[in-house]
Design a protein around this nucleic acid. Structure first.
Lengths: 168, 168
DNA sequence: ACAGAAGATTTCGATATCGAAATATTAGCA
DNA sequence: TGCTAATATTTCGATATCGAAATCTTCTGT
């Protein structure tokens, strides 16, 4: 018989122990493991929320990429930003265009290139989903005081700043 | 012409601004956005590293789940842990079993159930990949002092502890 | 003991994704 | 100019994933 589901905190402890036993450094694994399990939980919630709007995680990734870019992007750029093969993007964009969330605009200056942009409906969907997910996200951070939340953000941003320099 | 690729830090700033403009709370978005872009980068590195070992991200998720559980799991549990449909797990396990990384053991007490466990080779692959990824992970956290790293871990663990209570 | 509900895994048809090749355009350069 | 290389997107065949249904086993209640 499978035993009772352990708490997230307990799973985290075990995961860190496992990684350390396999040769990882403890302080590193505590951070990385926590970041990953947090993302995993968030992804589950987003998936449910997006299902209500009849949008897949992959489609949502396209919408947010366009929203964040604040300018038109090419299919290749979107494929790159969303970690997917360029050939897969074609079909995704077809579906999104059919639903009226994005539109393709051929580049007049370079006819091999197509620009993708959010339609008004696309922006509305984005805004709607963000307001919904902000609720869950706020809940997740509830146990952190204002100062702690700021400190957490600061530390993460130090890490982010380093991302480009690695592996290059 | 597409302009120069912005830095991760710059992308982060913009993303937060976009989410705030769409109705998100700033201190929340700073944290959540940072966590997600960090995970995305890590996933890219893992994918490359795993490709060298001829393992997909999905297969790796199965291996780590088994390693962390430290006991045999059923296909359903694995599907749940790795966010995939139970029917998809069947084929994944077939492939992993063909490669000798896992093995299926029928449960003697309940013949509808099958237990999946890592083989010796499975453990070796796990250990090898962990030692490899620890290198990158350590690099990522390089700009944080020991105390800062500890504080980051602590804050994240506070958040983790709350995950179970949400949405239930 | 037995009928029906619940559970676990697999099979099946439809769809999504991948990598490689095809197509079309632009850029570099002799 | 004209030829080759590079770039952007799409098409194509193979594989992976999904949700629903099928199969088999165990549990529940009478």
């Amino acid at each position: 018989m499978p035993r009772r589901t352990p708490s997230a905190a307990e799973l985290h402890r075990r995961a860190v122990a496992t990684y350390v036993a396999a040769g990882g450094e403890e302080s590193v694994q505590r951070v990385i493991t926590a970041v990953q399990s947090l993302t995993k939980k968030l992804d589950q919630w987003y998936a449910r929320q997006l299902a209500d709007l009849d949008v897949t995680a992959g489609e949502w990734a396209v919408v947010t990429s366009l929203a964040k870019a604040a300018e038109a992007l090419t299919p290749s750029q979107l494929a790159d930003l969303t970690n997917v093969a360029p050939s897969s993007m074609t079909h995704r964009l077809d579906k999104l265009a059919d639903r009226g969330l994005i539109e393709r605009t051929p580049d007049a200056e370079n006819r091999t290139r197509t620009y993708i942009s959010l339609t008004h409906e696309g922006w509305e969907l984005f805004s709607l989903a963000i307001r919904g997910s902000d609720v869950v996200e706020t809940d997740v951070l509830q146990d952190l005081g204002d100062d702690e939340r700021g400190e957490l953000a600061r530390l993460l941003e130090v890490v982010i700043a380093r991302l480009d320099d690695i592996d290059a």
